[in-house]
Design a protein around this nucleic acid. Structure first.
Lengths: 346, 346
DNA sequence: CTGTTAGCGCGTTCAT
DNA sequence: ATGAACGCGCTAACAG
């Protein structure tokens, strides 16, 4: 590494003090316009760049925030991250992205590493790892490092969150199926220790009850958000003696798997069985048989999470304001659930 | 922030010096086993955690590396990043991910921010932004900050890279189409100032020439890696008086768009028109009409890029060894290009 | 084996 | 308006 120029170098050249240089560069009020200009010029001349590490060490702020997600290769999380970036970059922050791959060890490991890296805060979507990572969260709280949950939250006192109304999204999706005339609606669920899946389950259930239909717990199957898992689960459902005529899936990926399996059995969608997913992943729109899904406005979610973080970090540290932002989901109706021909333009 | 415990705190408690504590913690050879143990214990007791910032300031190493990609919401780049992580995490590095969204300003901006953040190196896939960001690259070189290109490289002396043999991938894809009996093969290209697209074009061209077919430049159309762009371009091609009977697309996304458009025109795939994409994005496998594509083993690519970085950073700084790793692509044949019924199990 | 000292680069008193 | 001096937390050089 070529030696970087420091404020000392430029101080020496100007026969002034490093302190003065620092002040000049930072816009201190009581510095003569002359030296300010002089310093600025020579700084540029010498290709001076502030060493953020030193500044961070001094100020205690690294201007790095950690973002922890289960994985980045879904449009949903990638979009959230984009939203976070859009909000944070202009404020001079950097984003360190970590993936948990739903593994407990990685989750707590990532938190610790980020803390070690002196991040100014952590925005995260909790994984569905089983163990009790709550201890990590509490450690964070004790250190007063801002922690914001988005999408997949845990209910911990004092931690702000940005989520969507999963109950409502599920309710409307299910209601839509009922309105289309479907009567035996199955639900591809997921780990309901995670609030989002619990709420999607509850929304689904309530819609059925409100419509006076019979609620059949056997039609609720817990699976994982993977295409192949969706296929497997659908296979089971198709073997029921009284098989469902519609599927509300808590995930677009399992919805896709279900569709594949349904077709493989020679059944028609949506005539024989209707399918609705969740998250509005791009492929739901691009499939020849486009898939009805619930949009979660992930970019907006990311932006809001970032805003909450900025508030917490800028406000007086002593005021710990817990903030719960809840977004409204939007049902996007497509071919996989609509018997008539009127579709959205997508 | 609660005051963190430092090595001074634990030194005071033990009536020894901070230096000793530091040594004990870092496994210095000449420290008594007794104190080493004692220090370790009290460190744990007091919840001591090393301040990486201070260490970084001291050592000049931040143990952060920057990864710059056009975007993260494609499986290809996400997988590369995963490969990089797998290789770098065990070495204690963190990964700061930046997206350029193919914008020149963001590309140079990201580089500068990363440098400011004192990253130990940058792994990047260049965007197809037009401007001359070469100056940024050269600035990097001058500072001796390791820079490694993956996938989308620029040919700059002294910069290592990990790529795949795009020429070969394109050649084999095109050859496959020819072997299937197709004769008028169009190519959906992309910005050929990027080597990957230039080479895919050249591979396509060579395969045609080698087969004794007529090469028709009119069948090469430059577009962008988006589904809708693929549709638009395909629309044009379908209006040719002598329309193509096969498409080799440099992108899976444009291939998908092309397929949509072909179907919209009531034509059959692969009977009337055959389609091959590039990158082996997951959706190519999941479509009902699965899409033939060229796999680029992105995880492997990421791992290799990380390995090259580690070599550069660990080796003697004075030896600037430029390393060019080239991976071999693999053609994955699926329904969209195969007239017979023998498919891969996918 | 361990203490002393010094410095990484910066911002911030406290003087002047 | 500016200089001198100190400290953020850690490690390395030099003692002893």
């Amino acid at each position: 590494m070529k030696k970087k120029t420091t404020i000392y170098d430029i101080a020496k050249k100007l026969n002034i003090t490093a302190a003065t240089v620092s002040r000049a560069l930072n816009g201190n009020s009581k510095i003569s316009e002359a030296t300010r200009k002089l310093v600025a010029e020579t700084a540029k001349e010498m290709n001076y760049e502030q060493n953020k590490l030193a500044q961070a060490l001094k100020s205690g702020k690294s201007y790095n925030v950690g973002v922890i997600v289960p994985r980045i290769d879904s449009n949903f999380f990638a979009s959230i991250i984009r939203g976070i970036e859009e909000e944070l970059y202009p404020q001079g922050y950097h984003v360190i992205i970590c993936q948990t791959h739903d593994q407990e060890a990685l989750e707590t490991g990532n938190i610790n590493s980020l803390l070690n890296a002196q991040v100014d805060g952590i925005l995260m979507s909790v994984s569905n790892a089983k163990g009790d990572s709550d201890t990590s969260f509490n450690a964070l709280l004790k250190k007063n490092v801002p922690l914001i949950f988005f999408d997949r939250k845990k209910e911990i006192k004092g931690i702000s969150s940005v989520t969507i109304d999963d109950f409502k999204g599920a309710y409307e999706a299910t209601k839509h199926l009922i309105d289309q005339g479907y009567r035996r609606i199955a639900h591809l669920s997921n780990d309901r220790s995670l609030l989002i899946f619990k709420n999607r389950y509850l929304g689904y259930r309530q819609a059925i009850l409100d419509s006076g239909l019979e609620f059949d717990e056997n039609l609720v199957i817990e699976t994982h958000s993977k295409v192949l898992e969706g296929r497997k689960t659908m296979k089971k459902l198709l073997n029921f003696e009284n098989r469902p005529d519609a599927i509300f899936s808590a995930s677009d990926f399992t919805a896709l798997g279900a569709i594949q399996e349904i077709k493989a059995h020679g059944l028609k969608i949506p005539e024989d069985i209707s399918v609705v997913g969740f998250s509005n992943e791009p492929f739901t729109r691009f499939m020849e048989l486009s898939i009805t899904s619930v949009d979660q406005s992930p970019i907006e979610m990311g932006r809001l999470a970032a805003q909450v973080f900025l508030e917490e970090v800028n406000n007086d540290k002593r005021i710990k304001s817990e903030k719960q932002v809840v977004l409204t989901p939007e049902l996007i109706i497509r071919k996989s659930s609509l018997k008539s021909q009127i579709l959205d333009k997508a």
